[in-house]
């Protein structure tokens, strides 16, 4: 009986230690090859997107994507290219959110990671850029 109790206590101790260890890890894993690749692709694309943010043609949506909010602000010959760059950016963003969730062993975190990013993109947007509030209403920062 004492042996069983001792085993029990050991198991409980191990559980507490494990829990503490998990909590001590205050960072998410973001240093994977897949994440690095997405990051550098997005960094390279930013030069193309920045003028659209500044003109208000493209805004930062509350779902963590970028959206064409006023196509008339893009000169007609550039509209195709603008749509392509927006689509590519949104594909990379979706992959980024998915990859971060996966790299941390919890694919189900994807939606929460997306919404965390959505808030931070908007918070860090430059003054003059267009951002969307929770009710999908656009406003200029």
């Amino acid at each position: 009986m004492t042996k069983t109790l001792r085993t029990l206590i050991h198991i409980m101790l191990a559980a507490f230690l494990l829990t503490g260890f998990a909590h001590a890890q205050g960072n998410l894993e973001i240093n994977t090859p897949a994440i690095a690749q997405l990051k550098s692709a997005m960094q390279g694309r930013h030069a193309q997107l920045a003028p659209f943010y500044a003109s208000g043609a493209v805004g930062l949506a509350h779902d963590g994507t970028v959206q064409l909010r006023d196509a008339s602000l893009v000169p007609l010959p550039q509209r195709g290219a603008a749509n392509n760059v927006i689509a590519a950016e949104n594909a990379d963003r979706a992959a980024l959110y998915r990859e971060i969730a996966r790299a941390n062993g919890n694919p189900s975190w994807e939606a929460e990671i997306r919404s965390t990013f959505a808030t931070r993109w908007i918070d860090k947007a430059q003054p003059g850029w267009w951002v969307q509030n929770a009710s999908s209403v656009w406003a200029k920062k």
Partner: peptide, 29 residues
């Protein structure tokens, strides 16, 4: 005990996620 650990582990670490987002956004922009 083990399932309690798993439960604790699947709580979304909001602060860590925010830190990770800031880090990546700073690099991209």
């Amino acid at each position: 005990a083990v399932s309690a650990c798993v439960t604790i582990n699947i709580y979304f670490p909001a602060a860590a996620a925010e830190k990770a987002a800031d880090h990546i956004i700073d690099e991209v922009w």
